[in-house]
């Protein structure tokens, strides 16, 4: 593998790693604060699943790193512009309805993305995808169940979810937007086919919204930038909290 194609492969893996890490970090902010004990435990479980998946991706990204950076250095010591997660996952939790809506959109997309990656020509990527998709399958069924319940619940619960959807839908376009790196990885048989992912994602999420009596707003311009390191304003604060231990005590281990 040439140095450049190794670098590109690493960037692709870092996108996957950062998505899982950042949404895991966001979900873990609920630990001890969720509206019911059972929800608290379930949310923390999901966060742990995702951080566990992030670790697998980071371990691979570390193997591919030409500067020999470790898993921890990659996860916790890069600067904001070097994080390659989509904008959706860094959006603040807001109320619980907002968190559930973010999770619902993410889970459905995540599932079809991983499904595509199980067929990757890269054996490590397909193995990690294979392992992760079992957990994500459950995430989808859990978040769908809650969205359908609350969408058809009281006027208040329906209103909160619809408002969350109105706020978050503008970040859905980036999920399946293909750029040069995606095209290159697809051509090599390594990456997922995002147009296929988009078809399945749209069909599933439209069905979900319909069942939950929710309507996705018409968005003129979909936000984008996270995949190339251009983040929204809340990302800085998230990183400050996530990185403070490694920054103040370098090489700290548990």
């Amino acid at each position: 593998m040439s140095a450049q194609s190794q670098k590109n492969l690493q960037q692709y893996v870092l996108r996957l790693a950062d998505n899982a890490l950042i949404i895991g970090q966001r979900l873990s902010e609920w630990c001890g604060h969720a509206p019911a004990l059972e929800e608290d435990i379930a949310t923390a479980n999901t966060a742990l699943d995702l951080i566990g998946q992030a670790r697998n991706w980071f371990a691979y990204a570390s193997e591919l790193d030409t500067d020999g950076r470790s898993e921890d250095q990659l996860a916790l010591l890069r600067d904001e512009r070097d994080y390659l997660n989509v904008l959706l996952v860094e959006q603040p939790n807001g109320d619980y309805g907002n968190t559930l809506m973010r999770q619902f959109i993410f889970d459905i997309w995540h599932f079809y993305l991983l499904e595509g990656l199980t067929r990757s020509a890269d054996a490590t990527i397909s193995a990690i995808a294979e392992k992760s998709i079992k957990e994500v399958n459950y995430h989808v069924s859990r978040s769908s169940d809650l969205i359908i319940r609350l969408g058809n619940g009281t006027e208040e619960s329906h209103g909160k979810l619809q408002e969350a959807l109105n706020n978050l839908w503008r970040y859905s376009g980036e999920l399946t937007l293909s750029d040069a790196l995606d095209d290159e990885m697809l051509a090599l048989g390594i990456g997922a086919d995002l147009s296929g992912v988009e078809r399945k994602f749209q069909a599933a999420i439209t069905r979900g919204f319909h069942e939950a009596s929710l309507v996705a707003p018409k968005i003129g311009y979909m936000q984008r930038g996270g995949k190339t390191g251009v983040h929204s304003e809340s990302m800085g604060r998230l990183l400050a909290e996530m990185q403070v231990m490694q920054r103040s005590h370098p090489n700290l281990t548990w």
């Binding site: 379930a42 479980n45 319940r149």
Partner: peptide, 20 residues
């Protein structure tokens, strides 16, 4: 024991609380 709105939700919660 745990709290849940109905049987389906009780199963999901039980999975998360007691079988991890």
């Amino acid at each position: 024991s745990l709290h849940a709105a109905d049987a389906e939700m009780a199963l999901n919660n039980a999975r998360d609380v007691y079988t991890r």
